[in-house]
């Protein structure tokens, strides 16, 4: 992420830099907490798709602010490597892989978690249907872990992009939680389709004890759970889909939070300092391609 003019004007970006968060995303979690009191009594957390780690930072500061935290635990997982954060166990892995979920459960040593969150977003390809599918799979993987590790009454938060298949997901989540709300923090840009699904009060499905089986894919796991995921039938027919729309809430206290799309006059002392991107880019996979190009080595051979 470079210093585009948008970043320079974005107050959340400056605030993140000032307050020491690795990414402006921190405010999204903070604002969600303001609205839903997500952190109340929370000690054991799984932060999925966590790099560069600002949510983990927020959680770490919150959970480890008092001394009485002997059984507290934060596990952060991402495809990308993450630099260490106090009190956070990091794991570099693909959350769609059932074996990754197994590893996370191992870290919890059979214990339960109070809160599972996922701020996951795939690298968009531009093929909208594929991007939506992968996004939905990230949510499902997070949900799969949540059903296995959350204590009764625990909370689950995941990033969603409003798209074709989302109302379907609401119906499915409704079967697992007391309350399902779609929330858009003020710090999330209005121009992006991003919002967060906040699920409160986990209630395990009656008569079904979710157990992670690394040999089952996420889809197969949910087929057994009967929450309305499409099933594979002998005659290959399509299932009819049930849809339901979740209530929508914009959160972040209107009086004190900034609208991330608006342009604000900068407070005086902030104006002079030029800030580096808060989210230091980790080496992109195409780093070598850029290097070769710079050296002029990408030539036609004839």
């Amino acid at each position: 992420m470079g210093k585009s003019s948008k970043d320079k004007r974005d107050l959340y970006y400056r605030k993140a830099k000032e307050e020491g968060w690795r990414a402006r995303s921190a405010f999204k979690l903070l604002q969600l907490n303001e609205q839903f009191e997500l952190f109340k009594g929370v000690k054991r957390v799984v932060d999925l798709c966590a790099a560069p780690g600002s949510w983990s930072q927020v959680l770490s500061r919150e959970i480890f602010k008092d001394e009485n935290n002997s059984d507290a635990k934060i596990v952060a997982v991402d495809l990308q490597p993450m630099s260490p954060i106090d009190h956070v166990t990091t794991l570099q892995a693909d959350i769609t892989h059932p074996k990754t979920l197994e590893k996370i459960l191992d870290i919890f040593e059979g214990g339960k978690a109070d809160f599972v969150c996922s701020d996951g977003a795939p690298d968009v390809t531009g093929l909208h249907d594929l991007d939506e599918y992968i996004q939905a799979q990230l949510i499902l993987s997070a949900l799969q872990l949540a059903t296995c590790v959350l204590k009764e009454g625990g909370a689950f938060v995941a990033k969603i992009f409003r798209g074709r298949d989302i109302d379907l997901l609401y119906s499915q989540l409704g079967l697992l939680f007391d309350k399902v709300i779609c929330a858009k923090p003020r710090s999330s840009r209005g121009t992006s389709l991003e919002s967060f699904i906040v699920c409160l009060g986990y209630k395990p499905r009656a008569g079904w004890n979710p157990k992670l089986n690394p040999n089952l894919s996420t889809e197969e796991f949910f087929q057994e759970m009967k929450i309305g995921r499409p099933e594979l039938h002998d005659d290959l027919s399509f299932d009819a889909e049930e849809r339901k729309v979740a209530p929508f809430i914009a959160c972040g206290d209107l009086a004190t939070s900034y609208d991330s799309d608006a342009t604000y006059t900068l407070e005086k002392d902030l104006q002079r300092t030029s800030l580096d991107p808060v989210q230091m880019p980790t080496a992109p996979p195409y780093k070598k391609a850029l290097e070769l190009k710079r050296k002029g080595e990408l030539k036609i051979i004839k």
Binding site: D94, H97, Y133, L216, S217, T218, D235, L236
Partner: peptide
């Protein structure tokens, strides 16, 4: 997309079986 192979019998147009290699992460 989860690295399963669904085999369809084309004569009956019915599902025959689903095979996998025990590695079920998402594919791109």
């Amino acid at each position: 997309a989860h690295n399963n192979v669904t085999i369809i019998d084309l004569t009956s147009m019915k599902l025959k079986e689903v095979l996998n290699c025990n590695w079920k992460s998402i594919l791109y």
